[in-house]
Amino acid sequence: MSVTSIGKYEFEPLDKQENFHGNQLTYINWEQHLLFCAPVCLPLPPEMPFGAFVQEVLSGVYSKHPDFEKIDWDAAKWTLDGADFTPDLGKSLADNGLGHKSLIRFWTPGLKGIAGSHS
């Protein structure tokens, strides 16, 4: 859509990848566990292996939840930027297709959150 303005109106986006010191922003959401009020945002190196992402990053973010230790990672379902996705734990985030400002959502079947409230 054209911009309604009094003159030329072009600006640099504030959140270009090069502003994040070699990292890319990754958005993460553990579905139906709303004890964590919103998806989180982290700057991660694109070369980080997906296995480390699960073991280190996700446990750092979510291990306070009583359901976290019950997660069966083999049964987890993933989407990446809206499409179904099966991560390769040995490959890097970038090789798994994660780009700057990608959104990763994961579902953990059987786990229904605090007192079944999806929290």
């Binding site: 958005y27 959401n29 004890l35 964590f36 009020c37 919103a38 998806p39 989180v40 945002c41 982290l42 750092g60 973010v61 306070k64 959104l103």
Partner: peptide, 9 residues
Amino acid sequence: FYNDTLPML
């Protein structure tokens, strides 16, 4: 409980 990771906006 506190959330230790910054949120997506």
